[in-house]
C-alpha cells in the first residue's frame, strides 16, 4: 500500500522519479518550483535547510518562512502527481500539517526539498484517492439537480434540512474533544480566537489547527468517507 511506484515524465529530462517521493532528486524537486537555474535552486534549498534547522531548535520566524517557502514546491509536486484545482490547495494544507508533525525527522545534512517533496507526494496520493472515493459515491451537481430539483420545492425539504442539521450535530458530537471544542467556540458560538483562547485555556494556534482538522473530519464524514 505504501510503495506504489510510477514514473512521472517531464519533471526532469534526466531523472526518473518515484511517486512516493523519496526518489525525488534535490535538483528536480527544486526545479519543479519554477524554472530556476540549478545553482539558484540549490542555494534556495540551502536557505530552506538553514531555516528548517533553526525551526527544529524553536525559531518561529525561520519556521514560518520555511513553511511559506514550501507552498510553491508542494503545489508543484501535487500538480506533477496529477492533482488539480482546489484539491492542490488541500494538499498544501495537509502537507504543512504533516511537516509540523514530523519536523523532527528532517536531517539538516540532507536536502530539505527531497524531504518535503516526499511528504507532499504522499499527501497528493491521499488527495487523489480521497477524490476517487468521493467521485464514486457522489452524484455530480448537475445530475443531482435534475433528479432532485422538485424535492427541494417540496414540503419535505424542511424535514431534509432538519435531518441534515441533525447529521451535522451528530458528526460534531463524535469529534475528538479538542476538535469539538474548536468548532463549538469558533464556529457555533462565533467567538473570536482571542476570546475562545481565553475561555478554553488553549493557545490560539492550537484552536486553529483543531478547527482545521475538525472541518476536514466533518467534510469527510458528511461526504460519506470513513
Amino acid at each position: 500500500m505504501a510503495h506504489e511506484e510510477a514514473t512521472v515524465p517531464g519533471l526532469t529530462a534526466t531523472a526518473t522519479m518515484v511517486l512516493d517521493g523519496s526518489l525525488v532528486p534535490r535538483e528536480s524537486a527544486a526545479r519543479a518550483v519554477k524554472a530556476e537555474p540549478a545553482h539558484a535552486s540549490e542555494s534556495s534549498d540551502q536557505r530552506r535547510v538553514a531555516w528548517m534547522a533553526a525551526a527544529q531548535a524553536g525559531d518561529r520566524r525561520a519556521y514560518e518562512r520555511v513553511l511559506a517557502d514550501a507552498i510553491p514546491l508542494i503545489r508543484a509536486v501535487a500538480r506533477r502527481q496529477g492533482v488539480h484545482g482546489e484539491l492542490v490547495e488541500d494538499v498544501v494544507q495537509e502537507t504543512l500539517i504533516t511537516m509540523h508533525r514530523v519536523r523532527h525527522t528532517y536531517d539538516p545534512a540532507r536536502s530539505f526539498d527531497a524531504w518535503l517533496a516526499a511528504l507532499a507526494s504522499r499527501r497528493a496520493i491521499d488527495a487523489l484517492r480521497g477524490a476517487g472515493r468521493r467521485d464514486r459515491r457522489e452524484i455530480g451537481d448537475e445530475k443531482a439537480l435534475e433528479r432532485y430539483a422538485e424535492v427541494e420545492l417540496d414540503a419535505s425539504s424542511e424535514t431534509e434540512r432538519a435531518q441534515r442539521a441533525h447529521r451535522l450535530h451528530k458528526a460534531i458530537e463524535e469529534l475528538p474533544p479538542g476538535q469539538r471544542e474548536a468548532v463549538e467556540q469558533l464556529g457555533l458560538k462565533e467567538r473570536s480566537l482571542a476570546e475562545a483562547a481565553a475561555h478554553t485555556g488553549r493557545s490560539a494556534g492550537a484552536l486553529k489547527v483543531n478547527l482545521h482538522r475538525a472541518l476536514k473530519a466533518l467534510r469527510g464524514r458528511l461526504h460519506g468517507e470513513p
Binding site: Q56, G58, Q93, L96, A204, G205, K208, V209
Partner: peptide
C-alpha cells in the same frame, strides 16, 4: 488560509529533538 495555518503552526512550535 495557508497563511493563517502557518501562523497557527508557528504558534504551536516547540523545539524538537532530531532523530
Amino acid at each position: 488560509s495557508h497563511h493563517s495555518l502557518i501562523a497557527a503552526l508557528g504558534a504551536e512550535l516547540a523545539p524538537v529533538r532530531r532523530l
